[in-house]
Design a protein around this nucleic acid. Structure first.
Lengths: 270, 270
DNA sequence: CGCTGCTTTGAACAACTTCAACTTCTGTGG
DNA sequence: CCACAGAAGTTGAAGTTGTTCAAAGCAGCG
């Protein structure tokens, strides 16, 4: 099964030096056409046929991989492109008045960045790599005019934006109504699900973000997040050692998270 | 200035019996083509020219006004159309596991509903009228194919969805990081701004939603919201008498809300 | 080896919630 | 048109949950 090797690869990349990490990425991240991209079912061109896929492929630019802490774009930068994560991960965050930052999301392979910038023409948040990360850049003008030609692409684009709105609303519910333990539980299950959808293990994975980022994202203090991790471990729900997580009891976690049933049949989401 | 009459009209409609309310609505809400619609600069067809506007007009269905507490759509209902509020207001909400409801948004004239349903093909939330409300229905299939023809319409649609994502992220920040007083203050300023953009008074208005709905939306207890209203009044920030609000000191409220400067130049937002 | 940054843990504190009582408003039927 | 019942809103007091502050433990890196 691909799941297992994929996981191993990921855990390896996390543990090993950047040198080796880079080598792994170079192998399948750069100069691969969309139709050969292992993510092509998850990213934009889902349900696009051969000829159309090539058209899309032509407008996509592949960038050199970002190193950890490098920015993909900064706050206020003029909006030119949509980005797709090819491998690695990023966080998006915006500055708040009091000089803090607010983490608005984490982005795993196959996920999009920049959709929130279309409206104003500039990025309301910054995007920073959490680890070595490779990215596809899709110039928005080209994407827009290509969508004009290809109804399925337009449809897919609207679907993806709609999904983002939907997901944001779930998060609003989380932030508005749920307890600290429900938030962390939901967060872990969400990451788990997203890994699964991308062919990685859903029961064992490495978190690329710090406790601080998690806390910030979930609207909690770092200390609270830390305590929750400890408690979950004590209760046998997870095993945790720094960034390494093993989900031991998904059922109970789901109850704690107060999950809607609807959040489950998300399998063919993207 | 139109502002003043608009306000008067609104306050009147709130105070008077439903009978009279209906009459006011009948006058300019029903059977008006998009190009004559007073909201047409705010709703979808912004920056669409005459001929195109007519095409759009042809696919829009006007529904009979909804009465207070009537549903526009229910949770899980199959997604067919995008809706535009023509007059009145609605709330959207979704059920949570514990049988509660979570208010996900309020929708004023010129604003859209249903964008979150495109992805899954069914409505993740329900929409209920807060007062007598009239609506334009835009069948999504038609809108999609018309967008295929009209690049500006496609662009506008993407812009609007992007704006919704952006707004949701602001709300996430509010729910995750802000105190009760900051939340209520931001809420009132948001309503105020949206009224202003639609030609109503931004300093005096009626809230069509209950304290309960506000509390739910802001992730607070009703009692907390009530106390904050009282405190704001004591501090001379607002005058409040049940649903009637007068903003007395916008500057201080903005500070309390911890507003980003960016939230200000929102004037040509839609 | 020793620094720096991230994480964990404990204890005091603050903010908001919950519970309960009371007031005001709304609308419905006599 | 008034009375009454139920809903919505307000206020006070006690209780929780999560935050803040402080300090110690640990991993990675020059």
């Amino acid at each position: 099964m691909q799941q297992i090797t994929a996981t191993e690869l990921q855990t390896k990349a996390q543990r090993t030096k950047i040198r080796q990490n880079k080598k792994v990425l170079d192998l399948h991240a750069v100069k691969v056409a969309c139709k050969e991209c292992s993510l092509h079912q998850l990213c934009l061109p889902r349900s696009i046929n051969g000829a159309d896929l090539e058209k899309l492929d032509n407008i996509i630019e592949r960038k050199r991989p970002l190193k950890r802490n490098e920015h993909l774009f900064q706050v206020g930068e003029s909006f030119q492109s949509i980005y797709v994560v090819r491998s690695g991960s990023l966080k998006t965050y915006s500055p708040t008045v009091d000089g803090q930052e607010q983490v608005t999301g984490f982005h795993l392979p196959g996920e999009l960045l920049g959709l929130d910038a279309i409206g104003k023409g500039k990025h309301p948040c910054a995007a920073k790599a959490l680890e070595t990360t490779s990215i596809c850049e899709v110039p928005f003008e080209n994407l827009e005019s290509l969508s004009q030609e290809l109804p399925t692409l337009q449809h897919q684009l609207l679907r993806l934006m709609s999904k983002e709105i939907f997901d944001d609303q779930e998060l609003m519910l989380l932030l508005g109504k749920k307890t600290a333990e429900a938030r962390l539980s939901a967060f872990l299950l969400s990451i788990s699900l997203r890994f699964k959808q991308r062919g990685f293990s859903s029961i064992e994975f490495y978190l690329s973000m710090s406790r601080n980022d998690i806390a910030n994202y979930l609207g909690l203090a770092v200390e609270t997040v830390s305590r929750m991790f400890t408690r979950f471990q004590e209760d046998g729900l997870i095993e945790v050692e720094r960034k390494h997580i093993v989900i031991k009891n998904r059922e109970v976690m789901r109850q704690i998270a107060g999950m809607n049933e609807c959040c489950e049949d998300d399998t063919q989401v993207n």
